[in-house]
Design a protein around this nucleic acid. Sequence first.
DNA 1: CTGAAAGCGCTTACAG
DNA 2: CTGAAAGCGCTTACAG
Lengths: 329, 329
Amino acid sequence: MKQNATLKKIAERLNVSISTVSRALKNHPDISEETKKKINELAALLEYDPNPYAVNLRTHSSKEFAVVVPSLSNFFYHSFISAIEEDARIDGYTVIIYRSANDPVIEQEILKSCRHKRVSGIFIAITSGTKEIEPFLKLDLQGIPVVFFDKVPKYESCNKICVGDAHAATIAANEILKKGITNVLAIFGDENMSITQVRLQKFTEIVSGYAEFKAVHANNSEEAEQIALSMIPGFEKKRFAVFCMSDEILVGAMKAIQRMGLKVPADLGVISISDGMIPSLFYPEITYAETSGFKLGKLAFGRMMRCIAGSSFAQTIIDESILIEGGSI
Amino acid sequence: MKQNATLKKIAERLNVSISTVSRALKNHPDISEETKKKINELAALLEYDPNPYAVNLRTHSSKEFAVVVPSLSNFFYHSFISAIEEDARIDGYTVIIYRSANDPVIEQEILKSCRHKRVSGIFIAITSGTKEIEPFLKLDLQGIPVVFFDKVPKYESCNKICVGDAHAATIAANEILKKGITNVLAIFGDENMSITQVRLQKFTEIVSGYAEFKAVHANNSEEAEQIALSMIPGFEKKRFAVFCMSDEILVGAMKAIQRMGLKVPADLGVISISDGMIPSLFYPEITYAETSGFKLGKLAFGRMMRCIAGSSFAQTIIDESILIEGGSI
DNA sequence: CTGAAAGCGCTTACAG
DNA sequence: CTGAAAGCGCTTACAG
């Protein structure tokens, strides 16, 4: 088993002190060019890399961000994480990803682990069962900034970066009206989720008066499929569209549409709110109001860096959506 | 900013030595029950938790596993990681997830980071561009076991846990013959991946002689779509099926099929190898040979624990698949 | 320009 | 049963 190089080994081989090696490697101005040169050469040869545990123990900083998500198999979070990683790399931070499995107990354990590791900051989408937010605030007080994203607590004074639900619903609703659709089946998710409420309210506000529409709720793909199967036949197919609030709903609705052998967009239009992965699986691709995980990640990272720089002013940032046309409406 | 409790603080408050506190907290038999009791009580009160950096610096072990995957938005990896986390939790290990973004350079950086952190072990699905495996073998020599899964190198003597590619291909091929299909378009992935080669070889072996078939390669969904678009029209639609080696291929093929307005399974059959997420998005659902990430994770973890226990005997474990019927063939 | 020394928080062989 | 001491690998104020 090959030993890792240490400052001590380099110092011994070169007959200098450990301090000098340490300084030379950090390009400290005190050290002569000559000394620096020979130290850096040997370090390269030995593939020296500082032991992060020792560094952390000394400096109390880890240059490591944690991202905590309920689930990984989610294109939205994936894009979010990509954005964080992209920016973190530039600033010399490492990103570690934790999965809470949507379990508040596991979430607490992860938090504890982050605290002990003194991560530089935490990006987190909380579980649907997360009740207490004191542990998060405590971290903030200990100097570990917490930036909530997507699934955020209701509590006011914390850093939150969210998808603009009202805006996304507005975009989708406007597109429906613009296309001259007059009959709409709008399928929403779980009635208790705040994101459902916001999307429903805004959508209704815009569409009502201009189109006949029916709003229904489905708790999962199967329910959405059943609803679509039973309700679509009742609509006059002319100038008719189905609006799906989320990917989950869209998947169910599309199954029903395929099952009934209907053609999109000839027989009916389809429009949804999505991050774009699921809509791209169909032909024609589904038109959607984009909620971009990537953009959200960029915003969150910016906020985080400002927290680290000392801005303790909690702030809510909301990301707006744009319409991505896919030919389904 | 609240300070974290340390052994020293507890020792001072209780007028005992640091050594005693350390031992009491580990339930060392030398320490009297009485002393243990008061120390544990204060530790609980102060929410003492050992500084992992200090522990690691001393003991050279982290009780932390790394899982490295090319992508997160992948149901297969998600199930794999769930299985690892489930088992790791039981044994007191933490799991950290790294994303290589299918970039060999980032993969190397992650490896370096794992080495410096002296993780207890690494589970890795390599990138498609990974050429050198010495860095992995070096880790193994340094006492950090590496268990490859799913995307594994060709090199013989390493720990590999794979989907039973030959078996999955066999199941799919047999189902095709069983259904009386005589014309097959088989779309495979990147020719350089060993998984492609194995699946292609086995599939060919079984189908040839019984059906007319054409095997082609696509490096991504778009290529698969183009291939399907250009080649499907050339086939006699009677008793014809498309075989897709992976989800990526399936997505492309299904887009082409929808685009051409063909009906599944009336016009043509479709069968694939998958973990089951993508096949369930269509109607009818796609029939597939199941490769379970969860089962693979359980196998990989078992192998890892045996490595840690000292079994240096490299071993390839293969997980077998089963056929999940969806009505597409 | 360079080095000796202290200390981050822990573990553990050694001594008593 | 308990403690003093060394040491993991690093950084940095202090001294020269």
